[in-house]
Amino acid sequence: MTDTLFYVFAAITLISALLMVVSPNAVNGAICMIICFVTTAALFVLLEAYFLAVIQVLVYAGAVMVLFLFIIMLLDVNKDTSDLLKDKMTLGASITGFTLLVILTLSVFAGGQHLPETALLPVMENPTGEGVGIPFTTSAKSFGYSLFTKYMLPFQVTGFLLLAAMIGVIVVSKKHSENS
């Protein structure tokens, strides 16, 4: 059952990603992108990372893509849709690069001589927080525990990064006055 779900969600993710890339209309592309993010969240659920699945839907499919749709509709960039197939050089270069990257990925991770498979480890329901490493758990509690012990400095740096991004957005989008 879970295997079937994995194949279905992986197929939807890849197809919607490809549709996003080749869709001439940017708004349709953004909608395909939302589908791609939601199905990636479903893959996270299959990997038992429930908290990250929720974060993925809220932040990526919610906030980020709504911002993208807002900007696409605000700028109204759809009126000058250039033909995708007009530039033969770009088309050939991108298809060649894509094919090479796909062959590389397929040769490493699929087929007869791929990398060795590791078994799926058992998951703890409730973390104790003891020991050297932080074991994989399904609860959001281990995120809080890790953020305030092992990842305390990156957590604070991320807070400063958000502050810097906020100030940067204000500075970039500020209208310049006439005399400056």
């Binding site: 890339v21 690069g97 590389l104 490493v108």
Partner: peptide, 17 residues
């Protein structure tokens, strides 16, 4: 494999569009 294909599709879009 799925992650690598997503990365490849993203790179395809960056070069093509």
């Amino acid at each position: 494999l799925v992650a690598g294909l997503l990365f490849a599709i993203g790179m395809f879009g960056v070069i093509l569009r």
